[in-house]
Computed example of a mutant assay.
Amino acid sequence: MLAVALAASLLLDYMHVRYMCPDCPYPTPMSVVFFALLSTLGLAVYAVLRTSSGGARAGGDLEMLASLLREPDRSMYLKLVAHGGEAPVAQIAKELGLNKVRAWRAAQRLQEKGLVELEKTKGRLVMRLRSSYLPPEPKNQQDQKRYKQQH
Score class of each variant (00 low, 15 high):
residue 2 L to D: 06
residue 2 L to F: 05
residue 3 A to M: 07
residue 3 A to K: 11
residue 4 V to Y: 07
residue 8 A to D: 08
residue 8 A to W: 06
residue 12 L to C: 15
residue 17 V to L: 08
residue 18 R to D: 10
residue 20 M to N: 15
residue 21 C to T: 13
residue 23 D to R: 15
residue 23 D to Q: 15
residue 25 P to L: 13
residue 26 Y to W: 14
residue 27 P to E: 06
residue 28 T to L: 02
residue 30 M to K: 10
residue 34 F to K: 06
residue 34 F to N: 12
residue 37 L to Q: 02
residue 44 A to S: 12
residue 51 T to K: 07
residue 52 S to P: 00
residue 52 S to E: 09
residue 55 G to A: 11
residue 57 R to Y: 14
residue 58 A to D: 12
residue 58 A to N: 04
residue 59 G to H: 10
residue 61 D to W: 13
residue 61 D to M: 14
residue 62 L to M: 11
residue 62 L to I: 10
residue 62 L to K: 05
residue 63 E to P: 00
residue 63 E to V: 13
residue 65 L to I: 14
residue 65 L to H: 06
residue 67 S to T: 12
residue 69 L to E: 06
residue 70 R to Y: 14
residue 70 R to A: 09
residue 73 D to H: 07
residue 74 R to L: 02
residue 84 G to P: 03
residue 86 E to H: 05
residue 87 A to Q: 12
residue 89 V to S: 07
residue 90 A to H: 06
residue 92 I to A: 02
residue 94 K to E: 12
residue 97 G to F: 00
residue 99 N to M: 02
residue 99 N to E: 11
residue 100 K to V: 08
residue 104 W to H: 12
residue 105 R to L: 14
residue 105 R to C: 08
residue 107 A to I: 04
residue 113 K to S: 01
residue 116 V to N: 05
residue 117 E to H: 03
residue 118 L to V: 02
residue 118 L to D: 02
residue 119 E to G: 04
residue 120 K to T: 13
residue 123 G to S: 09
residue 123 G to I: 05
residue 124 R to P: 00
residue 124 R to F: 04
residue 126 V to N: 03
residue 131 S to V: 09
residue 132 S to D: 14
residue 135 P to Y: 05
residue 137 E to T: 11
residue 138 P to D: 02
residue 141 Q to E: 13
residue 141 Q to I: 12
residue 143 D to C: 05
residue 146 R to I: 10
residue 147 Y to R: 06
residue 148 K to E: 08
